[in-house]
Amino acid sequence: MTARARLIILVVAVALLGTVAFASVMRASQRAGERDTAQPGGPPVSAGSVSLAGSGRMVFRNMAWGPYRDDLVSVPVGDPGGARVAAPVRCLRFYAAAGTGVCLRKEDGALQETYFASILDSGLRTLREFPVGGIPTRTRVSPSGHMAAWTVFVGGDSYAGSNFSTRTSIVDTRTWELTSSLEAYTIIKDGRPYHAADVNFWGVTFSDDGHFYATLATKGQTYLVRGDIAARTVTTMRTNVECPSLSPDGTRLVFKKRVPGADPDEPWRLYALDLKTMEETPLAESRSVDDQVVWSDEHTVMYGLAGDYGDDLWSVPADGPGAARRVALAALNPAFIG
């Protein structure tokens, strides 16, 4: 083949491949544009003020298409599927309690995306923000609003290999003292101090300003741990507990549990754990749930499941029997105000 022929082939191929590449970007861009237009039949959203103070409201990340997609919105607790009021605060993950909010958000850069944990006051103003080392997954605030915790996925970047781990941080919003990784805590496993390189923490749920529950994973096993912030210790309690969420009265946990025989793509089911009797009860949701549930009252938990436009919000009784029901379309990470 002559040099000329090769050059012609190359030019034609560049033109062809370039067209395909360009078309794919344009198509994706157009699709992204469509998501800025509200879907017919979707929940009505309008701009307004969202507050973490007050009462009878539920605040969450709006995933419905339209100009307010990904904004924090507020709805009446009694009508979660109704009209949404949006504030221009965008979070990947959100939680709030007693007028303190945590917004885990993304900032785009040229070489990579960067992520921050912003602590918000009741008017959604940023009080303090902390850079975090990876993609956000869970966040919680203590019932008093004083303590905040978040978990991100770290690693897996282009050069350091594809091993992921989690990093969980806790901050005291009164002193701004930050524990950037729970791995700094002493682990007490089966009554003895425990060390391992592969320790991961995720899914903190606070019982008060000094104590919390969370998931610890090591050597392929997950554990429910109870954490003591003053003593900087975590103590293992039982195995196969992920993303615990403590009931408002502090007596029960609802968590996701890996069930044997399940499809490896959908391994988790929701269970309740009575902390007094340590008895487990399966909840009525039969699908796999990968979320840290939120208690909407003493007897009900809410969680996200994939829907047509982002996650939909579902609820199920926290005591066992009953049925799951969809609470709101295109809604993620609810927090109950007041």
Binding site: L92, Q112, E113, G134, I135, T137, F153, G155, G156, D157, S158, G161, S162, N163, F164, S165, T166, N200, A217, D290, A306, D311
Partner: peptide
């Protein structure tokens, strides 16, 4: 490689733990 973690977590809603 640069977008895969984000795609897995944000795009597909999966946990990347155990990826490696």
């Amino acid at each position: 490689t640069a977008v895969l973690p984000l795609y897995v977590v944000a795009g597909l809603g999966l946990s990347p733990l155990g990826f490696g």
